Amino acid sequence: MSEKAHVMEVLRKNLEPLNSLFEDPLVNEVMVNAGGIVYAERAGEMIFIEDAGLKDVQIESAIVALAKSVNENVQANSAKTFISASVENLRIAGALAPASHGGPSLCIRKHQQGGKRPNLGQLVERGMLTQQQADWLTDLFVTEKKNIMVGGPTGSGKTTLANALCMCIPAYERVISVEDSLELEPELKHHVRLLTNASKGVTAQLVVQHTLRSRPDRLILGETRGSETFDLIRAFNSGHDGSLSTVHASSAEDMLYVLEMLYQMSLPPDASLSPDAVRGYIARAVHVCVHVTRSVEQGDDGKFNYVRRVGEIIRVKGVENGKYVVESIC
């Protein structure tokens, strides 16, 4: 039995009242709050599951069992009360008491499999970006081979947009992607997919270093968040044009400062660089920043829907007087 199949078996067994949500291909997130309160996002709509029939003991059992299925050990009222795991296209985050006040809580994200992920044209149809924005990004990423960072808050559609952009990469280019779960599904023929596994010592830093020895035309890093940042920026600056990654940030320009902080934190031991030097290095490595947003809007039918949009696209021009020089594209 595969690891994902085992995890799904654990979920179905311990959270049986939610099985219909786990099987529904339109449900991409299941959120279980303390007290058995359940919400889910289905096709962009936030829905409340009335009378879910879950008890805290079931949620706690599910979290403990999920942890064991990925070789972790969690226990309520102990020093280890969190689980954070990625298994193929599933991302799981759970917490037990006392960290989760009022009872255990759990969040399960399901990413669509290949063949079902939207392309750039479909995202335009959905209103995530305009046709003009799509044309600009296609020209910058595919034709001009600019290095692009896609940023925004959790659940804003960063990976969805990144995946759609990767779908536009020419078939003859060798693409190597690095992720901690299988979220990118661009269905490219010349595509090597590498997965990190921190529990087994396969860190993002080591995997990014490996890609540089594997003749990539483009490097795609699912998310930049830590020790791999130094090697990512080095890769961006070493001729692998048209590479891409995502990062959590509150605006397009803030993405550069987040990268700067992560870069400083990821420097090799005993190494140090001045902020100006780091800023200049990042400005030469990252050419375009795209920021996406997530908001909730209530429709005429009274339903609440998540709306994801490209809010900003900026071109990075360089550094002057210690500050990034950027040009707003839209």
Rank of each mutant, 00 (worst) to 15 (best):
1 M>P: 01
8 M>S: 04
9 E>F: 11
15 L>C: 07
16 E>P: 00
16 E>D: 09
21 L>W: 01
22 F>L: 13
24 D>Y: 05
27 V>Y: 03
28 N>Y: 11
31 M>Y: 03
31 M>L: 14
31 M>W: 08
34 A>F: 02
34 A>G: 07
35 G>S: 08
36 G>R: 03
38 V>E: 08
41 E>G: 00
42 R>Q: 13
43 A>C: 08
44 G>K: 05
48 F>Q: 14
51 D>V: 04
58 Q>N: 07
58 Q>V: 02
58 Q>A: 06
58 Q>G: 01
59 I>M: 08
61 S>H: 10
63 I>G: 01
66 L>E: 03
70 V>Q: 13
71 N>A: 07
75 Q>H: 14
84 S>C: 13
84 S>P: 03
86 S>E: 12
92 I>V: 15
93 A>Q: 15
94 G>K: 02
95 A>P: 00
107 C>R: 01
110 K>F: 13
114 G>T: 11
119 N>E: 09
122 Q>F: 01
125 E>P: 00
125 E>C: 10
128 M>I: 01
129 L>W: 01
130 T>Y: 04
130 T>S: 15
133 Q>T: 09
134 A>Y: 04
136 W>Y: 13
137 L>R: 06
139 D>F: 07
139 D>T: 11
142 V>A: 00
148 I>D: 04
150 V>P: 06
165 L>V: 08
172 Y>I: 06
177 S>A: 13
182 L>T: 08
187 E>H: 07
195 L>P: 03
198 A>F: 02
203 T>K: 05
206 L>Q: 12
213 R>F: 03
214 S>V: 01
217 D>A: 05
219 L>D: 11
223 E>C: 02
228 E>Y: 02
230 F>C: 05
232 L>S: 11
233 I>F: 06
234 R>E: 15
239 G>T: 06
242 G>H: 06
249 A>V: 03
250 S>Y: 07
252 A>W: 00
256 L>H: 04
262 L>G: 00
267 L>Q: 05
269 P>S: 13
273 L>A: 06
275 P>H: 12
280 G>R: 11
280 G>Y: 01
281 Y>A: 09
284 R>Q: 15
285 A>Y: 03
285 A>F: 02
286 V>H: 06
289 C>Q: 13
302 G>Y: 09
306 Y>W: 06
309 R>D: 04
321 N>M: 04
323 K>R: 15
323 K>C: 05
324 Y>A: 07
326 V>T: 15
327 E>L: 08
330 C>R: 10
